[in-house]
Amino acid sequence: MAPQTWFITGVNSGFGRELSEALLRRGDRVAGTVRKADSVADLAREFGDRFWTAHLDVTDGEEITRVVDRAFTELDRIDVVVSNAGYGLFGAAEEVSDDQILHVLNTNLVGSIRVGRAVLPHLRAQGGGRIIQLSSVAGQTAAPGASLYQASKWGIEAFMEALSHEVAGFGIGVTLVEPGGARTDFQSGSLRLGRPLAAYDNTAAAMVRNLQKPEFRPAGDPKRMAAAIIDSVEQHPAPLRLVLGRSAYDGIRAALTERLADIEPQQELAYSADFPE
């Protein structure tokens, strides 16, 4: 397979870092965005001009447009865009502040929407490409203590699913990646908690406070997950969803089954709410 060019946001850590290392080592070219340039200095030294970098804060819409435009101009063609930058905000709804709510939504949801919109004119002009959006098992499940993180992921799932239908005719495929917990540096670098309230100490919402403890060891292998994401680009048509990890598959399947069980008994009532034929 001929080398490809990937644009990936947030390559300094997590899946962004795993993907970048795997792609560069197999001979592909990566355009990666970071908040701190020195966080990927080792990759720049090792891979030289095959690793293009730029500063990007995905809460800055104007900067997103500038960086995307420059990447496509300087690299000519980008085959795959990975919208990866984001983080986890956990805590009961009462425990997170208004500022925290706005920031996680501006990063995970609005930032990802802006990245998707910014790349579309370029992908259409070059006759197609692939958009990969990092979501989560949290994009289809709902658990106490994760309401705001899940709101950001449910939102980007809806946007990307609708977008996939809008752009299919241009040869642009869209894939939502839904991993379960993985042993990345998410716990230490990309996880934030609200301010604990005693009222929630003995409730299910308090369980998320354990996520930052060293003994919490997710089952997901980030290297295997990154390999599956890379392999998905060879699938045509693009898979709309890529579920990775036992916890993700079991959790999503249970959530969807429960939702169907909730609505199916309501068919007669639902139909009765229309004007008579």
Rank of each mutant, 00 (worst) to 15 (best):
S97T: 15
Q100E: 13
L102A: 14
H103L: 14
N108W: 08
L109N: 09
V110M: 12
V110T: 15
S112C: 01
S112N: 15
R114N: 15
V115M: 05
V115F: 03
G116E: 10
G116R: 12
A118G: 13
P121W: 08
H122Q: 03
R124M: 03
Q126W: 04
G127H: 07
G127M: 03
G129A: 08
R130I: 09
Q133C: 05
L134K: 03
L134V: 01
S136V: 08
A143Q: 05
P144R: 01
G145W: 05
A146W: 08
S147L: 12
Y149D: 02
W154Y: 04
G155S: 07
E157A: 03
A158P: 01
M160Y: 14
M160W: 00
E161L: 10
S164R: 14
H165D: 14
V167L: 11
A168K: 10
F170V: 02
F170Y: 13
I172P: 06
G173R: 09
L176Q: 00
V177I: 07
V177H: 10
P179E: 06
A182N: 09
A182T: 09
T184V: 09
D185N: 15
F186G: 00
S190L: 14
S190H: 15
D201E: 11
T203G: 14
T203H: 08
T203F: 02
A204V: 04
A204T: 12
A205E: 10
A205W: 07
M207A: 13
R209C: 06
